[in-house]
Simulated scan of single mutants.
Amino acid sequence: MTFQIEYWHWVVFGMLLIMAELVVPSFTIFWFGLGGLLMALLVWLVPDLGLSIQLVAWAIGSSLFALAWFKLMRPLMVDRTNAGIAREAVLGESGQVILAPQPPRRGQVRFSTPVLGDDEWEFICDEAVAVGDRVIITEISGNTLIVKKRG
């Protein structure tokens, strides 16, 4: 009597690996569990696959899932907002004036990528600036940026 791997074995194996990700939060075991579910589908479609072919296909499928995640998808999800970055890291960032200051109202500046979690900030500038001028952050005072005109 020989033991034959059925598709449901791969379903159970894949689900166990996916559930193991809850205990070991590395987000790598998940892809091997997904590879197991892919193998369940393959074995269901082609039930005569040998165990060695199944294991090689599982390893290749799992590796491709992991590679696709770490090389293609994960870089797209990186937070590029500078939120949580020390204030010194944003000094020197350049933005464009969208509302010129007129006392007692402060001006508004917009950045192409958010600075400290927001892309529009109130600002104070010692020089006269007009809408469309480029300014550079020199200091942060509470919720207001202190800027200078970009020369």
Rank of each mutant, 00 (worst) to 15 (best):
Q4I: 15
A40Y: 04
W121P: 03
A86Q: 12
Q54H: 04
E93Y: 07
V109L: 04
I146V: 15
S52P: 00
S94Y: 02
W121H: 07
R134H: 07
I136C: 03
S94P: 00
I29Q: 04
P114T: 07
D118K: 15
F32A: 10
D118T: 11
L42A: 13
M15Q: 01
D79G: 00
L116F: 03
M39F: 07
L116P: 02
I53S: 13
G151A: 05
V56I: 15
S94E: 13
C125F: 06
E122A: 09
D118P: 02
P103F: 10
Q108P: 00
K149P: 00
A100D: 07
I146Q: 13
L64G: 08
Q54G: 10
M73S: 08
L55N: 09
P47I: 05
V131C: 07
A100L: 06
Q4W: 13
L67T: 12
I29S: 04
S141E: 15
V90G: 02
V97C: 02
I136S: 05
N143K: 04
D48V: 08
A86E: 14
P104V: 03
L41C: 11
L45C: 02
G142Q: 10
T138P: 00
R87D: 14
E127G: 06
M39V: 09
L72V: 14
S112Q: 14
V129I: 14
E88K: 11
G35K: 04
P47H: 08
G151R: 03
I98T: 15
E93T: 00
A40K: 07
A59F: 13
L22D: 02
L17R: 05
V78H: 12
S94W: 00
V46H: 11
D118Y: 12
F3T: 09
A68Y: 01
V135Y: 09
G132W: 08
E120S: 06
A128C: 00
D79F: 01
G35S: 13
G61D: 03
I29D: 04
L22C: 10
W58M: 02
D48H: 12
S26I: 13
M1F: 06
L91Q: 07
V43S: 03
F13C: 09
L34I: 14
L34A: 14
A57H: 02
I85D: 14
A89R: 15
A89H: 13
G14E: 08
E6I: 06
E139L: 06
D126R: 12
G14F: 05
A128F: 01
D118L: 10
E122T: 08
L45V: 09
V12W: 12
R150V: 04
R150D: 12
I18S: 10
E122K: 10
I140V: 15
S62K: 05
A66N: 10
T2P: 14
F27L: 14
G14R: 07
G33N: 08
D119E: 14
W121A: 01
Q54T: 04
E139H: 13
M1E: 07
P103A: 14
R87G: 01
P103L: 11
A128Y: 02
R106M: 12
V46S: 11
I98C: 06
A100I: 09
G92N: 08
G107Y: 02
V11Y: 08
G151H: 04
G92K: 07
A57N: 05
L17Q: 03
Q4K: 13
N143V: 06
T113I: 00
I18F: 08
S94L: 11
L45F: 09
G36T: 08
I29T: 12
A86F: 00
